[in-house]
Design a protein around this nucleic acid. Sequence first.
DNA 1: GGATTAACCAGCTGCTCCCG
DNA 2: CGGGAGCAGCTGGTTAATCC
Length: 461
Amino acid sequence: MAGPSGIIDPSALSVAGYSQTYPTTPPMSDDGRESSQPASEQTTKKKRKAWGQPVPEIKQILPPRKRAKTAEEKEQRKNERILRNRRAADKSRQRQKAAVAELEVRQIRIERENAALRELLERYQSRFGVQADFPIPLPAEPPLVDLDCASTPMDLGSTSTPAPFTPSSFNDTNEAESSQPTLVQSEHSTPIKNESPVLAPQLNLIHERPEAEQTNSHSMTSLPGFPNVSGLTQYPAVVLCDLQCQPETWAISLPAFPSTTKTNLGISYLLQVFQTLTIFHSFSTTTLLPMCQLFQILAQRLSMTSTEQDFSSILTNFPLIHSLISMPSTPTRPAVFRMKLLSRLLACSPHMARLLLTATDRALQQVVSEEGFATDPDRRWTWSSLMTIKWVILRLEREHRKIRRQVWESGTREDTGVPELKVMAGVDFGAVARSSQLWQGNCITSREDGGNSWVPAQEVH
DNA sequence: GGATTAACCAGCTGCTCCCG
DNA sequence: CGGGAGCAGCTGGTTAATCC
């Protein structure tokens, strides 16, 4: 066998390893099958040698690439070739087995991951309900793609299950265009619903249409962490008014295979399914779970009982909050700053402004302390964005205090309604007014207790 | 010295044989 | 009968030998 340097390793050519396997006498002469062949057949069809023929011992080592001249050298080349070929065939089959084993392991792994993701999806659907046009997953036990039989991956999609997952939906240009973020102000009548492609349609908990509220009213209130208290418990959901996105943006369905192709599509199909599930899994872990966590915090009336744990969660999920409030411009859309979303977020809790300001400060420290701040345009944008958020929080909190004061004063006068103040653009007057009414009792109680548990954020800072 | 030729080589695969 | 293993043939790349 020729090594890397082209020198034949005599030990590699040794037939000692085969001496026990091969009989000393060729079986060809023993079984007589060779001799029983007609002469004409032997001449027309080349007869293979008997199985396990011994290879003669290598007498001399021929230099590599040196042409065999004599018959003896040619015979030796032939024998060397036989030995090399035996090893090569063995190696090839080992590789083949390893490849099959790897595919089997991969299949098991994908199936397990698929099951886990299905379970996760079911949990989300049981929590947030199922939207009619949201993709329905494949059956819990999808039929395995049998490459040997006539069934093709296409058959999987031809079941009665509607709208299976397909990554191809991500490539739908129309949908992609329709989901382009466009707005800054989060008004109801604006296409703001398209602004947050990072959010799943399952998060469309509170609809602005009464009928939609009725149909989905169970989704949020059925959660253990979302007590069914009208008013305050809706604020986290109200925040979501900004976050709604078109369900079709997230229509995930499995790729449609050309019906004519039947070979090797099973593995390709599995890989695509795996890719889709990975995308969904990433989305779940990076966005859905943090969002869910945030909403639970907001729903648990952190207004009066803000804890270190709440702050820790806000801090942990601050990048997500940041990305929802402020998005840099892209070649396809201008920069977005969701002022109204921030206003609604602050209206969720009297502590929210303080928590957000602290989280913003920490984020600012982190951005500035990292190396390359001055040269990295992305980091500079983050810094300016955080500074903007900080300034807006302070401005909004000032406006919110005006509104709260107005609400409380009108409440003490037992007026029938709260006259709308002239407030800064971007302030969600309604959300702040409603939250103020809800907190009023608690704050009064706190004051009566002689405590000073609630202090407006701006007074804290 | 460049072009051509043929041996060499590795890898793969269908066929066949052998064995448990 | 299924699986392991060897043989033969094929393919594509490399390289020594040969020719002009």
